[in-house]
Every structure is written in C-alpha cells, then in structure tokens.
C-alpha cells in the first residue's frame, strides 16, 4: 500500500481526501493531550498554542532532562476512548486537523470529525521506541501542573507512521471490526466446550 505523506497544518481539502485503511506518515507539529488536558480544554480552558490544523496526540510520554533540554525517551499512544466525553467539543472549538491515538473513538467524536474535517489516526500502541525515533524535537511544554505524562508537550515529528481508522466521511474501521467480530463471537458461542466439567 502506498504511504500518504501528510504535513501540518492539515487543511480541510487534504483531510477530505483521506479514507479508512490509508497508511500515512505525518510531519510537522503535534501536541500531546491526555485526560487532564482534554478535561481542561472542554471545560473552557484556553489552549496555550493555536491548535488549528495540528495533531492532538493521546500520549503521555516518558521525558528526561530539564526545561529547555527535554528529551522524549518513550512516546506511544494511550487509549483514546477515555477522551470521548471531551473530544467532540475540543474539535469543534479548536479545529485540530487530526486526532492521534489508539483503539478508536465513539459516536460523538465520529460526528465531530465529519462536521469539522478532522481525521483520526491510529498509532501502534506500545511501540514506544519506534515512535520516539520520529519525534525530532520538543518545542515546548505547557500545563505542567497536570504532571509530566499529562502535560501538553509540543512536539516536532518527522514521518510519524499511522493508519486512518476514522475518516471525515463517517467511516470507522473500529466499528467495522467490532461488528464483524460480534458475528464471529456468536459463531464461537455455537461451538460449546468439549472438555466437559468435572462432576
């Protein structure tokens, strides 16, 4: 499959050209945001940087060093679904071009992606070293009061690999796999355990 190169800021016409199953790599600026950042942004908080067209990465990195000399030592995605209560509002208010994370998101986010030309990019969970290699620089850090993993880290990335799993046309690969696996589950339920039970 051909790799689609994306650069931030992500413009709506670029996002509209993406479909689930597309493999992409992203170059430019992303900011990390986990539970605390999303709660803050969705409850009236102002983002310390202009998020329009950028990627919001569900990630709590391991960071070493100190102010001005930060180094990311591990940086894979966290489970996106925890941000479902907040994500739609964050997309509507601040218009990021992409949400990056793992595991996919729900109905509210799907609607927001469609309404505001945003895309969900799935990043391989746990692949912290492979992904940390693609982070070329820590540009800044904000909201450090939330603790190191929960702070907003502004990162320059080069060729960060990801998969489009929710596009702005309303398709979700996660939903498709869930439905297909439910059919599989019902089929498996039809074949009872043959080992019996000691009586």
């Amino acid at each position: 499959m051909d790799l689609i190169h994306l650069t931030t800021p992500l413009f709506p016409e670029v996002v509209r050209g993406l479909a689930i199953g597309d493999m992409v790599d992203l170059t430019g600026t992303i900011v990390t945001g986990r539970d605390q950042v999303h709660k803050y942004l969705a409850s009236g908080g102002k983002p310390p940087v202009d998020l329009s067209g950028l990627g919001i990465y569900h990630c709590g990195p391991v960071v070493v060093g100190k102010e001005g000399h930060w180094r990311i030592s591990a940086a894979g995605p966290t489970t996106s679904m925890r941000e479902e209560p907040y994500q739609a509002e964050v997309i509507e208010r601040f218009r990021p071009g992409a949400i990056l994370g793992k595991g996919g998101m729900g109905e509210k986010t799907r609607a927001a992606l469609m309404a505001h030309d945003c895309v969900y990019l799935h990043v391989t969970g746990g692949a912290a070293q492979f992904l940390a290699e693609r982070i070329v620089r820590v540009e800044a850090v904000y909201l450090q009061e939330f603790g190191q993993p929960e702070a907003m880290w502004v990162l320059s990335v080069r060729n960060l690999p990801a998969l489009v799993t929710m596009d702005c046309r309303g398709s979700s690969l996660h939903e498709r796999v869930r439905e297909e696996s439910l059919a599989g589950l019902n089929a498996a339920y039809g074949a009872p355990f043959t080992g019996g039970h000691p009586r």
Binding site: A74, T124, G126, Q129
Partner: peptide
Amino acid sequence: DTILKSSRLSRERTLPICQDT
C-alpha cells in the same frame, strides 16, 4: 512489524518498551 522493530530497539537501547511503564 512495528511492534517487533520497536521491541528490538528498546532492548538494544535499554529504553522503555512502552511509554506506559
């Protein structure tokens, strides 16, 4: 493939396999 590459890198560099340690 990504998982295998990343795990080899973490072993070589003695750095965390996953950022959620």
